[in-house]
Design a binder for these strands. Structure first.
Length: 439
RNA sequence: GACCCCAUCGUCUAGCCCGGUUAGGACAUCGCCCUUUCACGGCGACAGCGCCGGUUCAAAUCCGGCUGGGGUCGCCA
């Protein structure tokens, strides 16, 4: 409730990626917390593209970043590009020169820090006091006439009236420098909040050495955006109540920047996998199928003309046992192709020649009209019993015949999904296998 | 090295602000149950307040020091 006396400015937040690489998992979380705060405060969310490094900034990175932000479920009210505002930064640099706060030197423009003690009131960490600065001057306009980070950052934050700067902990040491620039420029100083860093599994910096670091790579591995968001939310923040699974729209309601941790959090693929499998299990089958279809299309994995309702059955077969969509490529291969070989580790299962018993099974299976798992199970067990076998003695070799593997989904469900024709075909192939082994 | 940040199971965390808990949950690991395999699911086990002082009847919780980890010190952002 807003009172007449409140002079509070509308909250305005920014996420400021640099298009010199794909959206990093850490950047994604920074974006998430910024977005969440804006949502919670009913404020505006600005995307500011920090493309001042003309050499390293690439259009493809920019596009990927925007795509990833959207994919994760976020949107923005405004987008600005620093590369379009170079004149502005130069103007302010000139102003500082006139006021004797900056000077030209070695082809660049330097800002002179008027250092006293600088104190930051961090929303997460409380007061941070800097008693010393490592330098006395800072480049604000580089030799090539482009602005340096700390300078363009201040000017944009001030001019676009950013009220809260929420960024990674690695920026803490930039903050006193920026505060001094704000002061020199006569700008109002925003609120700051420094997020803990995401650490590599062993601790230390999250780098390429530890596997995927960009959102895009996780997408390509077949992680759901909701799962990535959920997992990232759990890194440095908790909704409380022992809750682990939380959707973005729910987090929006309960998020409070003050609850964010101060400690760096190690990234755990195991936990991400678990969160992802939770989302897969709980997702409505139709939606899941369309996501899977879209995912598998990319690698041309699905044979042309695969029907959606067939794919849906396959997805139903596997949704309880995969952690990410890419698992399907090896596990569900047999659902789409007939040309698979029996895996090397199935030797013990196929050792005993059960041609006769398989023949009996074929008879029973072909006699079924409604080829569903109940009927299949009934006939299957009857066949085994008739041959004096335990069901499991027939189950294992048949699974190998149908899937090529010793492990997989429930056999009767698998048979129903494959359909009578393919089941019979593959059973014949099993008999042939034994024939060859003998000869 | 200088400046700054941080510290609860192996990992992510609840608890800390407003001292009194068998320090709770999740992932991972291990065991049992379910079962046609693998999973899922269910049940259970393992495992933690970095150390030393201080304040207090009482400290994970408040204070100080130490140790340990992290970040920054670019005409990168």
């Amino acid at each position: 409730m807003r009172h007449a006396g409140d002079r509070e400015k509308m909250v305005k937040i920014r996420f400021a990626p640099s298009p010199t690489g794909f959206l990093h998992i850490g950047g994604a979380r920074t974006c998430l917390f910024n977005w969440l705060y804006a949502q919670k405060m009913n404020g505006k969310f600005v995307l500011r593209i920090e493309d001042t490094d003309l050499e390293r900034s690439k259009k493809e990175y920019l596009e990927e970043i925007l795509e990833s932000v959207k994919w994760l479920g976020m949107d923005w009210d405004e987008i600005t590009y620093q590369s379009q505002r170079f004149d502005l930064y130069r103007e302010y640099a000139q102003k500082l020169i006139k006021e004797n706060k900056a000077y030209k030197k070695e082809g660049a423009i330097f800002f002179k820090y008027e250092f006293t003690e600088v104190s930051i009131n961090d929303l997460i960490r409380g007061e941070i006091v800097f008693k010393e600065l490592p330098k006395e001057e800072e480049v604000i306009i580089k030799g090539d006439n482009t602005p340096a980070y700390n300078f363009s950052c201040c000017i944009d934050d001030a001019l676009s009236q950013i009220t809260h700067v929420i960024r990674g902990e690695d920026h803490i040491s930039n903050t006193p420098k920026q505060i001094l620039m704000y002061k020199a420029l006569g700008f109002e100083i925003p609120q700051f909040a420094h997020l803990p860093l995401i650490l590599a599994p062993g601790g230390g910096r999250l780098s390429k050495r530890f596997g995927a670091t960009s959102v895009r790579e996780y997408k390509e591995e077949g992680y759901l955006s909701e799962a990535i968001v959920n997992y990232l939310l759990l890194l440095g923040w908790s909704p409380g109540n022992n809750q682990e699974i939380i959707a973005l729209k729910e987090a929006k309601e309960v998020f409070d920047i003050k609850d964010v941790h101060k400690t760096g959090a190690a990234f755990s693929l195991d936990k991400l996998d678990w969160v992802n499998s939770e989302y897969i299990k709980n997702k409505e089958i139709g939606e899941l199928t369309s996501l899977v279809k879209n995912y598998l299309k990319k690698d041309d994995f699905l044979p042309l003309g695969t029907k959606t309702d067939y794919l849906e059955k396959v997805v139903g077969l596997f949704k309880e046992r995969i952690t990410k969509f890419s698992d399907l490529i090896s596990w569900a291969h047999f659902c789409f192709y007939n040309d698979f070989k029996y895996s090397d580790d199935t030797g013990d299962i196929l050792k005993k020649d059960l041609s006769k018993e398989t023949r009996v099974l074929i008879e029973r299976m072909s006699a079924i009209d409604e080829f569903n798992k109940e009927a299949i199970e009934k006939e299957f067990r009857a066949a085994a019993t008739n041959c004096g076998l335990k069901a499991r003695d027939l189950v294992h070799p048949v699974r190998v015949a149908l899937t090529g593997r010793r492990i997989g989904p429930g056999l009767f469900e698998t048979m129903e999904v494959l359909g009578k024709e393919r089941v019979l075909e593959r059973l014949e192939r099993l008999i042939n296998h034994w024939k060859k082994e003998e000869g």
